[in-house]
Design a binder for these strands. Structure first.
Lengths: 154, 154
DNA sequence: TCTCAAATCACCCGAAAGAATGAGAGCGTT
DNA sequence: AACGCTCTCATTCTTTCGGGTGATTTGAGA
């Protein structure tokens, strides 16, 4: 909350132009009002109309100014990960192979992957070997990079 | 941009109360203006004053409404990374070793690290070896985990 | 000047990774 | 039942990688 207020304050400081334009708009509007007032001589009957008009205009202006100060706060968090199932099917990569791939991407050794999946070390080696040929790579690091490129892992 | 607009629209739909209050405030203000107007009979001389007052009030209202719609957009991104220099000094970890550590955390192999730092593979090995003893670990994966824990790398 | 830490590199060895091959169990489809 | 696919495991062999030790050069500081 405090940080938010500080940010708004900083924005306020750096937008002298906006304040100037705001005052200018106010003056111009008043001028226009006066001109209209003298031209049609309907001052008494439509005072509420004038006031409503001014209110509407300056509400819109206020909303615009308010949005302007906070627009920069809309922050985009990194791109979301969408699994590329098409690529998985095209390369006929099985579920188990994907599991091995994910653990491999976490920097785990084959033995650790084997322990985590409750299978033999040789099984992990077989999976990774098949994975390498399906991804057309030869080493695990290349496999990880290519898998990330193909949106198979985050 | 499109998403932003949609969000604002959704917010608009869900704030009927705000719109109602807005209209109410407008009516009340007009009423007050009229009362003041009839009480002091100074309509002609201070029209600009009235208009300015209305403008100011509704600008403030507009800013408030604008802020209200965007306040929810302030998103907090994950915890920021603050490098733990104290830990680095205590363990007497050199700059070069830190560089190796960062690249190691990116999953790069020793040869790739060597290529990136324009040094020999053996040099990288020496650095990483010293790093391991300073971090009291024996393998690179452990080193990465511990370094993250000690805020030496993001 | 001497000292020490940092950075660099070479050599050696064991562990891990990867390739190639074979094979058996389970499961769904034809 | 026969077939195909996945998952599983084993064995052998080669290559790569990781880690340790020792050594040299350089620059900053006591």
């Amino acid at each position: 909350m405090f940080v938010s207020l500080c940010t708004q304050f900083c924005s306020l400081v750096s937008v002298k132009k906006t304040i100037f334009l705001y005052g200018l708009a106010l003056a111009v509007l008043v001028l226009i009002m006066r001109m209209i007032e003298y031209r049609f001589l309907v001052r008494d009957l439509t005072l509420e109309f004038y006031i409503g008009l001014v209110a509407l205009f300056f509400t819109a202006l206020g909303i615009w100014v308010g949005l302007r100060f906070t627009r920069k706060k809309v922050v985009v968090i990194g791109p979301e990960f969408h699994f590329n199932e098409k690529e998985q099917i095209q390369r006929s990569i099985s579920k188990r192979e994907l599991e091995v791939l994910e653990l491999m991407a976490q920097g785990l050794a084959n033995q650790e992957i084997a322990d985590q999946l409750f299978v033999s070390l040789n099984t992990v080696k077989t999976h990774s070997s098949n994975l390498f040929s399906k991804l057309e790579v030869s080493r695990r690091t290349q496999a990880i990079q290519k898998a990330k490129k193909l949106n198979l892992i985050p």
